[in-house]
Design a protein around this nucleic acid. Sequence first.
DNA 1: CGCCGATTGTTGACACGTCAACCTCGCTCG
DNA 2: CGAGCGAGGTTGACGTGTCAACAATCGGCG
Lengths: 163, 163
Amino acid sequence: MSTIGAILASMDRCDAAIIAWSRLQVVYGHLAGQINRALYRETGLSDADAAVLIALLETPNESLHSFELRCGLAWEKSRLSHQLRRMEARGLIERTTCPEDNRSSLIRMTPEGFELAERARTVLGRAIRTSLEGALDGDQLAELETMLAAVVAHLDSHAEPLS
Amino acid sequence: MSTIGAILASMDRCDAAIIAWSRLQVVYGHLAGQINRALYRETGLSDADAAVLIALLETPNESLHSFELRCGLAWEKSRLSHQLRRMEARGLIERTTCPEDNRSSLIRMTPEGFELAERARTVLGRAIRTSLEGALDGDQLAELETMLAAVVAHLDSHAEPLS
DNA sequence: CGCCGATTGTTGACACGTCAACCTCGCTCG
DNA sequence: CGAGCGAGGTTGACGTGTCAACAATCGGCG
């Protein structure tokens, strides 16, 4: 959302990188805003809520160790802890201590959590599709996708350890 | 930062839009993290702090009506209000009521704010350049830039009014 | 067995952004 | 003139994310 780059772009040092970053901030902020607003409007969930619920939805038995969740989402441990505490308080998930390792805990959706997870998956799919297709035409989308795939591969090869 | 798309991308409905969004989230989160961490490490400023200070740095007399600042940054009014309150408390800026319109106020940097603004501009320029150039090669960068320019133009033409 | 380091999670303090409610001021129109 | 509308700004509550400090547990090694 913030637009540092937009301002830097007007500087004398008009670098391609700075202009690109400025525009990326604007575009990303706009798309993320649209998508998250649609999600909140239609499910009452934040993007973080949906990330957790959909991760659980994707597992075979619909439960995960908090540790797996953390790795899958690439979140900091305290972030996940806060998020799970809030979601437990709202009745979306429940935590049970893991028998094999008492440090860890098993995360499972409640029935309401499950229903919201499915709604979130649908809503997000639609919102992402309409937002992106509203902003880019088919060729641009394909171009963006291949470029991003290369960047992701590059980042993965230089992966930094999680804190 | 959040990775909803990464999870959605593994769904049966493997849309180009969803995959692209997933990757965009990963890439954007990574780059933003690098840049903002560098900024904080070397100046103690957040990206929002830097956005305000650099906006002030770019004006001819280094002061702005809060209203101009809000439009330039495309921020919500309460966001700017909170941000300015925090920055005033830290001695980065000062606010004086505007003589022509008592509702508005003039924002000006303190000397410390000015110095940090210049540091922030330097650090951000370098961090953006190294982060982007580390992730994309020159051709990709140019390609990204032209694509984003088209998207930004498209968004501007469908501009929604600020709340 | 017992200790120590590594891993896992929790907590509290803080910064940030959004929403809704509110205040204040300027302006228009009856 | 004055009532009310609208724009600009503030505030408080809340959800969110990060950092640092802490607690609990596991695992290996003497």
